[in-house]
């Protein structure tokens, strides 16, 4: 079976830090991969490299068997939800406008309604994006990412500003997309428990890749979990 993503010996060196050090793993169709790692672990850097936003990397990244340096066509099959969607606060775009930006073919306009309904933001469709709460905005950006029926959804988990209820809704939406619509998901998070509960694969990242495999394999191995927690704690203290 075709791998969706293959990462081989990925290394990213910024002027001051080595953000990723020889990271290799693959993602198969149907995976719900949770990437865990503390602040500064390189999660966003990994996504930026995968999405063609950072081209200064060593190693190889393949999507659907194709090296991404050769063709950008793979981007059509990907929906991406950034960690911090940055836009002008008073940008004159409604929820509907934002989701429409994601839409490649204008002929699929009723797709927008469908997606908005699925994500429980239908009644917000005429509101301006800047007026919404963090959790609502997050769902709008998920809707934008989904509106083209991507094969792969990449989500960089936002750190702040989302209440417990919205978080639960967010996870249940992700699980449904993965199980019912068979969308492969790569999702970064700080939250070990959440990854344990929802993802079926885990990658532990802290510049280097500690572990990659099925989540049971990781979470049933107390030693591994402990090792990881300690390492990331240390890393955390080191940073502050």
């Amino acid at each position: 079976m075709l791998n969706i993503v293959e990462i081989e010996h990925l290394t990213v060196q910024y002027p001051d830090v080595k953000a990723l050090d020889d990271v290799s793993f693959t993602v198969n169709k149907g995976d719900f991969l949770g990437i865990i790692g503390p602040n500064g672990a390189g999660k966003s850097t990994l996504f930026a490299s995968m999405l063609g936003l950072n081209t200064k990397y060593k190693g190889k990244i393949k999507f659907f068997g194709q090296d991404i340096r050769k063709s950008k066509d793979y981007l059509k099959e990907i929906g991406y939800v950034p960690q911090k969607p940055i836009f002008e606060k008073n940008f004159p775009a409604t929820v509907n406008d934002v989701v429409q930006m994601g839409l490649r073919q204008e002929s699929d306009a009723n797709k927008i309604d469908e997606i908005l309904q699925q994500l429980w933001i239908h009644e917000l469709s005429k509101r301006r994006i800047g007026e919404l709460s963090g959790g609502q905005q997050q769902r709008v950006f998920i809707a934008k990412a989904l509106v083209n029926n991507p094969k792969l959804l990449i989500l960089d988990e936002p750190i702040t500003g989302i209440d417990q209820q919205s978080i639960e809704l967010f996870y249940s939406i992700l699980r449904e997309l993965n199980s019912k619509q068979k969308i492969t998901i790569i999702w970064s998070s700080h939250d070990l428990d959440a990854v344990n509960q929802h993802a079926n694969h885990v990658a532990c990242l802290n510049r280097k890749l500690f572990f990659h495999g099925e989540s049971d394999e990781f979470f049933e191995n107390d030693e591994l979990v402990k090792q990881y927690s300690e390492a990331s704690m240390q890393e955390h203290m080191h940073h502050h």
Binding site: L51, G52, L53, K72, L75, K76, I78, Y80, P82, P85, I86, F87, F91, A93, D97, V98, Q100, M101, G102, L103, E106
Partner: peptide, 18 residues
């Protein structure tokens, strides 16, 4: 229209959308 609006709204996301 879409390309102009999207890249004005957020360059990075527009890039990711090809």
């Amino acid at each position: 229209y879409r390309q102009l609006l999207y890249s004005t709204f957020n360059e990075e996301q527009a890039k990711v959308s090809g």
